[in-house]
Design a protein around this nucleic acid. Structure first.
Lengths: 87, 87
DNA sequence: GGCGTCCAATACCGTCTCGATCTATCCTGT
DNA sequence: ACAGGATAGATCGAGACGGTATTGGACGCC
């Protein structure tokens, strides 16, 4: 489990499709698709249902989403907090 | 900022020296030392003071520590929560 | 019914990161 | 002065990661 994987997951949720998420993250679609697959494999869970019009969250995805957002927010907060001390 | 870097940081705090942290993380000491240095460079902050007897936290390190612990705990929690749904 | 579009998944390849090993230097304690 | 332990640097090889090209499936439109 990496922060890149969590960012991948959250961005796909927000954008609705892997292709759009890839554009937002400035990475090609195939690597992002693979990163999601690796996250699912690692968790042993299917996070999304693949539909012709995009990706829709499944139950495990709903369980992960708020936690992923919090982790990413905490990371940003940690970076800011440490840098602030330094001034 | 990666989870590996955060684990590096927390483990060095807990173990007191880079060498002992490296043993715990099952990695050689030089790469771990470098990983810490890269974290400090990335943050633009010195997290530890290097003393002959090991590493002691500086102010930015104290700011980071509780946040790092929480992030790592949240990651573990997220993994467990998602897997639990799957049973 | 066939064509174009949009989606994700797969295959293949180049690059760059990351850890291991070896070496050097510094400091402490005796 | 010497021995032990810690940090730091250089080099090398393996694995991860991203990019391009391509495939396959579903939908809409003419």
């Amino acid at each position: 489990m990496s922060l890149a994987q969590l960012r991948t997951f959250v961005t796909i949720v927000d954008e609705g499709t892997v292709t759009r998420a890839a554009k937002v993250l400035r990475i090609a679609q195939p690597p992002l698709s693979r990163r999601l697959r690796e996250l699912e494999d690692e968790l042993g869970v299917r996070l999304f249902a693949r539909t012709p019009s995009g990706m829709t969250l499944l139950a495990p995805g709903h369980a992960l989403l708020p936690r992923a957002r919090r982790i990413l927010a905490d990371v940003d907060d940690a970076v800011r907090a440490v840098r602030r001390r330094e001034d």
